[in-house]
Amino acid sequence: MIYFKKVSKAYPPNCLALDNINLTINDEEFVSIAGRSGAGKSTLIKLLIREELPSKGQILWGDQDIGKLHNRDIPFWRRQIGMIFQDFRLLPNKTAYENIAFAMEVGGCPKLEIEKSVPQLLKLVNLINKADNFPDQLSGGEQQRVAIARALAHRPKVLVADEPTGNLDLLNTWEIIKLLMKINELKTIVILSTHDRDIINGLDRRVITLEKGKIIKDDPKGKYILF
């Protein structure tokens, strides 16, 4: 369970990106975070993966305060979360296989396990025949699927996707969304931030709508309400 407790984030000089957010995300839930650009979606995610610290309030994972993590514990926390970004963020000098293996290597995962898991993950995202391709030899959709496989490599409890389909065409978009739903069926929390009306309307899951740093709507079977 993830619990945002009275969380605010201010950027100097006078930008209040998040304003007193209270939010609970339950285990095995699929949550979409909707809102325009600048509404605070990315800030919320940055706080969750401890890329930044909240100005006020607490973010709890179970009874652990993410904001109070010691620097050397941050990598361990990040290995419990899988991250997917709009711009894929693959390592350009590593092949698809190596990108996924890297996420396992950072945690000191044994070689045998890596050699077993990576092909499985590549099969899951349907890219087993592109294992030795470098990111610039893959299409956008393929790159994002590699990124999803990487995010799943250390069997995270939470998968966070920040506008994962922002750079993709319609067909690839739905492929990615289906993949996310499949992952959620395997009992992983999925947090999907998006401003795409069709995705949210098509998902029929919980939708949290942000505007100007505040939650204006939290609907268990939500529709996109902004224009």
Partner: peptide, 16 residues
Amino acid sequence: RREIKVMKLVGASNWF
């Protein structure tokens, strides 16, 4: 520099 950031976000320690 982007690569380094990605490594960190994927859970690499500073030394890694």
